[in-house]
C-alpha cells in the first residue's frame, strides 16, 4: 500500500515515523509522542486524523505500507503510540455501544439474541439506495468504500483462530475456509471483490483509494483490527463476525440488484451473489457454533460477544449512513470527489 496523505498532526507523525529508519527515528518518534500525548477526540469514531493514524498502525500487522520497514510492526515505541490512540477509539465504542439484555450462556439463547439484534429493519438503507436509485458513479463509490475491508476480507477474524478451541474454533475455521475460497484461489472472497473492482473500472491495489475514504469507514476496519489483535477481545471478535454475517445476505441481494440495474455485468454481481448464498450459511454457523459455542465454553464472555455484535452494527451503521446521507444530498460519499472516480 502506498503512503496516504495525512489528515492532521497524529497521522502526519505516524507517516513520518513509518517512512523513517527504525534505527534513526528519534526525531519523528518524539513528534509522534507530542502529537498523541494528551490527544483528545470529540468523536473518536469520526475523527479523520485519529482513524487514519490508527489504520496505518494496524496496517503494519497486515501487509504494511510501501517503504515502511517491517521492523516497525513490533517496535515498542510505535505500539505505545497505538495504545494511546486505541484507548480513544475503545472508550468511544464503549460509551456508544448498548447491548441488549444478556441471555443465558447457552448456544441457542445466544444465537436467538443475535438474530433479534440483527433483525432486518424496513426504511432507508445504503443497500436499498444501491438497489433502487444509485447512479453508476455512486456504485463505484460504494465499491471504493467497501474496498478498505473487502480487499482483505476475513483477515481480521482469522486472528481469532489460535485463541479458540473445540466447537467455536471449528466453526470459525469453517466460515473462514469458505471466505478464502475453500482451496480455490479464484473463489477467495477478497479476490472476487478485486475482480469486481476491475470490472467496474477501478484500481484493485490495496489502499489505492485510501485518501478518499472517510473516518467512519476506517473506524469500521479499525474496530475489527482492534478486536482481532487483542486476545482479551476474543468474545467481541466472535460477536462481531456473527453480526457481520447476519447482516449480509439480504443487503447483498439488494446490491446485486443495483449492479444489474446499472448494467455493471456479471463480474461485479458475482461477488454479491456469492454473499447472498455464502452468508446465509455463515450466519448460522457464526451465531450458533462460533458465538453460541464460545458462550457455552466461557460463559463470562457472553457480554463481550454481544458487545462485539453491537459494535459491528454501530460502526458499520455510521459508515453506511455517511454514504447514504451524502447521496441523498447529491454529494459524493468520498472525501475528495476527484479521487479515483
Amino acid at each position: 500500500m502506498r503512503a496516504p496523505g495525512s489528515r492532521g498532526a497524529v497521522s502526519a507523525a505516524v507517516i513520518d515515523v513509518l517512512l523513517a529508519d527504525p534505527d534513526a527515528a528519534d526525531g519523528p518518534l518524539e513528534r509522534l509522542r507530542e502529537a498523541t500525548d494528551g490527544r483528545a477526540a470529540a468523536d473518536a469514531l469520526l475523527d479523520e486524523d485519529l482513524q487514519l493514524a490508527l489504520f496505518l498502525l494496524y496496517e503494519q500487522h497486515y501487509t504494511g505500507m510501501d517503504a515502511a520497514s517491517e521492523r516497525w510492526e513490533w517496535d515498542s515505541r510505535l505500539i505505545a503510540a497505538r495504545r494511546t490512540l486505541e484507548r480513544l477509539h475503545e472508550s468511544e465504542l464503549t460509551a456508544r455501544v448498548t447491548i441488549p439484555g444478556t441471555p443465558e450462556a447457552e448456544a441457542s439463547a445466544v444465537a436467538e439474541t443475535l438474530f433479534a439484534l440483527t433483525t432486518p429493519t424496513p426504511g432507508p438503507s445504503l443497500a436499498r439506495a444501491v438497489a433502487a436509485d444509485a447512479t453508476a458513479d455512486q456504485l463505484r463509490e460504494f465499491l471504493i468504500l467497501r474496498s478498505i475491508y473487502t480487499l482483505k476480507e476475513a483477515d481480521p477474524h482469522s486472528w481469532g483462530i489460535p485463541r479458540l478451541r473445540g466447537r467455536p474454533k471449528a466453526a470459525l475455521v469453517e466460515v473462514q475456509s469458505d471466505e478464502y475460497g475453500g482451496g480455490r484461489p479464484e473463489r477467495v472472497h477478497a479476490t472476487m471483490f478485486a475482480r469486481a473492482m476491475r470490472a467496474a473500472g477501478l484500481d484493485d491495489a490495496y489502499g489505492a483509494y485510501l485518501d478518499a475514504v472517510p473516518a467512519a469507514t476506517l473506524a469500521s476496519m479499525n474496530t475489527m483490527s482492534m478486536f482481532g489483535l487483542h486476545r482479551r477481545w476474543i468474545g467481541a471478535l466472535c460477536g462481531h463476525l456473527a453480526a457481520f454475517e447476519m447482516t449480509s445476505s439480504l443487503p447483498s441481494r439488494m446490491v446485486a440488484k443495483g449492479v444489474r440495474r446499472l448494467g455493471f455485468g456479471d463480474e461485479v454481481a458475482a461477488y454479491f451473489d456469492e454473499h447472498v448464498e455464502a452468508d446465509a450459511v455463515h450466519e448460522q454457523v457464526a451465531a450458533r457454533d462460533l458465538a453460541g459455542g464460545l458462550a457455552e465454553q466461557q460463559p463470562e464472555l457472553v457480554e463481550d460477544i454481544l458487545f462485539g455484535a453491537a459494535a459491528c452494527l454501530l460502526v458499520d451503521g455510521l459508515a453506511a449512513e455517511h454514504a447514504r446521507l451524502a447521496w441523498a444530498e447529491d454529494r459524493s460519499a468520498l472525501r475528495d470527489a476527484t479521487v479515483g472516480v
Binding site: 438474530f115 445476505s249 439480504l250 446465509a280 450459511v281
Partner: peptide
C-alpha cells in the same frame, strides 16, 4: 454444491432455491 457446507431453504421464500438466502427472516 459450491461450498462444503450449504444451507437448504425450508421456508419456501428463497430466491435462490434450493439454497437459503436469508429471506426466512422476512
Amino acid at each position: 454444491r459450491r461450498r462444503a457446507t450449504v444451507a437448504v431453504c425450508r421456508c419456501g421464500a428463497s430466491a435462490i432455491k434450493p439454497w437459503c438466502d436469508g429471506s426466512h427472516k422476512l
